[in-house]
Amino acid sequence: MTTWKDRRILDLLEIGLPIIQAPMAGANGAEMVIAVSQAGGLGSLPCAQLSPEQVREAARQIREETAAPFNLNVFCHAAPAPEDPAVKARLAEWRRHLTPYYEEAGLPADTPVPLSGRAPFDDAWCRVVEEIRPAVVSFHFGLPAPDLLARVKATGAKILSSATTVAEARWLEAKGVDAIIAMGAEAGGHRASFLQMDMSRQVGTFALVPQIVDAVSVPVIAAGGISDGRGVAAALVLGASAVQVGTAYLLTREATISDAHRAALMSATDDGTQITNIFTGRPARGINNRAMRELGPLSDLAPDFPLAGGALAPLKASPALNGATEFSNLWAGQSAALANLTDAASLTKALAADTIARLNNMV
């Protein structure tokens, strides 16, 4: 086997390897996108924590370095209004719930609390996509309003979105996506769930992938718990046309995570992560720490996404609490222990080479 048997994603996205680098807000920028795309995979730029100008600059930087396709990733959540009385009351209750930690950190009661934000996809962001015209646009938390989705499609971009259940996959196909990312419970970062949010019902990657493959006609991309060639090969055997890999890229030279996050990844274990909502208000998988143990991991008090993080920001910055480790979101998937120190291009090529070797051995 010298070529990929299932070329649907390769041909659709015009890439050489069935490896998509997961967009990881706060953890990767243009440098990783360039490295992965130049290596033959699909590099992904997460836009949710960037301004339009930052996205434009990153896109300019990417295109200066490579003509290969790349992906812009955006969030499709409905942002709560901070001035809404009910929202303000919930934010105040969350802040009161954190008071003992403020006192332990020696922070004054009137310590300013920043407003935590993630940019939802709206008309302004759609205009950015229309200007940049990336080859691929991926959505998280479903899809935007039909008129916005139509405008994105009109640019010629291929549309990807994530599903955590078969029902979500069918919904996405009915709305016209070009490919579906089957996101298993093992995946790090925010769950893509949008039709149901019961975390006790989340499906593992290798149970989810073949069921979604059987349920839809568009190509399926496997995501969650895939960090080496064994995982890629298994996903392809189960019917996936490609994989999306996130956690393994967190230990590459191009990752923009903190030293504390890197250290936690280096000592990660198979059972060392949990799904929590305390850091942003929406369920996401990360490495266990004090905040997750004592406040969650899932809390009914956490304000709606993305507002929960604001009141935690002063605690993250507190040396007295070792906040960089114990009160920060250290996103990672269940396969974190399989990740190795490397660079993004080498990882991309190694994943592909190891996969081909393993598939050849199965013949």
Rank of each mutant, 00 (worst) to 15 (best):
A268W: 01
Q334L: 04
N28D: 03
A207L: 13
F121P: 01
P319G: 08
P23C: 11
A235M: 10
S299A: 12
G310A: 13
K158A: 12
A344T: 04
A35Q: 10
A192W: 00
E31S: 14
P283Y: 08
S138G: 10
T2D: 15
L351D: 09
V136T: 11
A207C: 12
P69C: 07
L91K: 10
P306W: 06
N322F: 01
V218Y: 06
A357N: 11
R96Y: 03
R8S: 14
I62T: 08
D343P: 05
A308F: 10
L251C: 06
N322A: 13
L251A: 04
I62M: 11
R7L: 06
V137L: 11
G106K: 11
T325G: 05
G239M: 05
Y102R: 02
Y102D: 01
N340P: 02
E65V: 00
G106V: 12
E57V: 12
S318D: 01
L160T: 03
L238W: 02
N288Q: 15
R290M: 06
V363Q: 14
A150I: 10
P303I: 11
A182N: 10
Q196G: 13
D11L: 04
L321D: 02
D271A: 13
P112D: 05
R8D: 07
V33S: 01
A81C: 11
R358Y: 05
D343Q: 03
S335N: 14
A187G: 04
P134N: 09
L12P: 08
G184A: 02
T164H: 03
S44F: 03
A167Q: 14
Q211I: 06
E103N: 01
D84H: 14
A235G: 05
S227P: 01
P144Y: 03
K5A: 15
G26V: 02
L298N: 04
A291K: 05
V136K: 09
L98V: 11
E294K: 08
L17W: 01
A22F: 06
P146A: 12
P319F: 12
E130I: 06
L160C: 06
F139T: 03
F279C: 11
G323D: 06
A179G: 07
L265H: 05
I257P: 03
A320V: 15
R95T: 13
R63A: 00
G225W: 00
T2S: 15
S138H: 04
G40C: 09
A353I: 09
Q211V: 02
A248G: 08
L265R: 07
E103F: 00
L298R: 13
Q49H: 12
S267R: 14
I19H: 07
P120E: 06
R262Y: 03
P134R: 04
S335Q: 03
V128D: 08
M24N: 09
V245Q: 02
V152P: 00
V74R: 12
A223D: 06
A39Q: 07
A30L: 03
L341S: 11
G296A: 15
G16Q: 09
G272C: 05
A344P: 00
N73D: 09
V166I: 00
D122I: 01
I19A: 00
P134Y: 08
A242E: 00
F327L: 05
E326N: 14
N360D: 15
V218F: 01
V33N: 03
P283W: 01
A67K: 14
A192Y: 07
G176S: 09
K153P: 04
D110P: 07
S37Q: 04
K175I: 08
D354I: 03
L12G: 07
